[in-house]
Design a protein around this nucleic acid. Structure first.
Length: 191
DNA sequence: CAAACGATTTTCT
DNA sequence: GAAAATCGTTTGG
């Protein structure tokens, strides 16, 4: 369900690594809606060792490596056997900001810390080893801290970096919070 | 078994 | 603004 991507805005994504908690409020998401979505790894019902996780029930982490460098964090959102997932693209730092700066090799905070899927995963300490973990029992989870996002504050836009998907690249499956600085621009983010 | 590519970010010109 | 970095997964021989 694409609507879940919208619901995730304003929720809090938390990771625990040892004693250290880090968390961000989700500010940007993208939906990858199953076998009919050319941008999805599961397009056409493809099932490989990597995408197998997408076919699992909702609430499972799907983390994969992109460009050999970046870990992208997704959550499955459907029933067992239906490969829907939502990519968490960006978040606003809440807890463990110092830790996140350290992981990112930065000394100053700023939007580049967690704005962007690869950057977000690195800041939270998420790696491909976390793929397949349940959000309900692991050291990665999503909380509802009662943050309300007005419908008018939600921007629906086309997804990023999926031009190869043809017509499906035009679908408004990307959701972000209007006016939030911690939203990826996905092109030339330099500070 | 070998080759190409990507749901990105950073760095250099 | 353009190009490099970098490796697991996927596809072709």
């Amino acid at each position: 369900m694409v609507s879940i991507a919208r619901d995730l805005l304003g929720k809090v994504l938390v990771t625990r690594r040892g004693d250290v908690l880090t968390s961000v409020m989700i500010t940007e998401t993208e939906a990858y809606a199953g076998v009919g979505d050319k941008a999805s790894h599961a397009y056409g019902g493809r099932r490989t060792a990597r995408t197998e996780v997408m076919y699992r029930e909702g609430g499972v982490c799907y983390v994969f490596l992109c460009y050999g460098i970046h870990h992208l964090f997704n959550v499955t959102t459907n029933r067992d056997g239906v490969p829907h997932a939502i990519l968490i693209r960006a978040g606003e730092p809440i807890d463990g900001v110092e830790t996140m700066k350290g992981r990112r090799g930065k000394t100053n905070a700023g939007p580049t810390l967690t704005a962007g899927p690869g950057a977000l995963s690195m800041a939270l300490g998420i790696f491909t080893a976390d793929t397949g973990k349940m959000l309900t029992v692991g050291d990665i989870w999503i909380e509802d801290r009662g943050i309300q996002i007005d419908r008018e504050q939600i921007i629906a836009d086309t997804r990023v970096g999926v031009a190869y998907a043809g017509d499906d690249a035009l679908l408004p499956y990307r959701f972000s919070i209007a006016g939030n600085r911690y939203v990826s621009k996905a092109k030339g983010l330099t500070l």
